[in-house]
């Protein structure tokens, strides 16, 4: 009986450890659709139209335009391969700006425009003093899309 118990314990530890390990390390994180990339959005079938989805990408430099009369803006979101236009209603978060990453939530319309009502700006995890930044120092940057996922 104690031998049986020991085997049971080892099997249990393997099961729990395996499941948790699969969750943490396995390729599970990669096929998680936490957000789509612009190239995936472009390839959407009609199934996905008008479904609330999240898209993550980099705001294209110089693409941001504000409306003079009401709150809201339009910009382009890119993942390096494809670029989609996004319209947004509301006040953007303080950290939102061109050249930074952002995750937007909203609907992909049939007219190939992304209508968003929520921007989640990521303030990047890079911290450095302003003098260094002006001197053009870049910290060892990670892969951009990867830094969004984690």
């Amino acid at each position: 009986m104690p031998g049986k118990k020991k085997i049971g314990m080892v099997v249990s530890i393997l099961l729990v450890g395996g499941a948790l390990g699969y969750l943490a390390l396995g390729n599970f994180g990669e096929n998680v659709v936490y957000f789509f990339t612009p190239s995936e959005v472009k390839a959407f079938t009609t199934d996905y139209y008008q479904k609330k989805v999240r898209v993550g990408g980099m705001v294209v430099e110089g693409s941001m335009e504000t409306y003079p009369d009401r709150l809201g803006l339009t910009f382009q979101l890119t993942d390096g391969e494809a670029t989609i236009p996004v319209t947004f209603e509301g006040i953007p978060p303080d950290l939102f700006k061109e050249g930074q990453g952002a995750v937007v939530e909203g609907y992909w319309t049939g007219e190939h425009r992304f209508e968003s009502n929520l921007i989640m700006a990521k303030h990047s995890e890079d911290y450095m003093p302003i003098e260094l930044k002006r001197a053009g120092v870049e910290l060892p940057r990670k892969d951009f899309m990867k830094s969004l996922v984690e």
Partner: peptide, 20 residues
Amino acid sequence: TLHQPQSISMRGVSISSGLL
């Protein structure tokens, strides 16, 4: 998720030394 990723991780440190 909205929180910034960890600055110190296995893939390296992204805080400059004055702040680190």
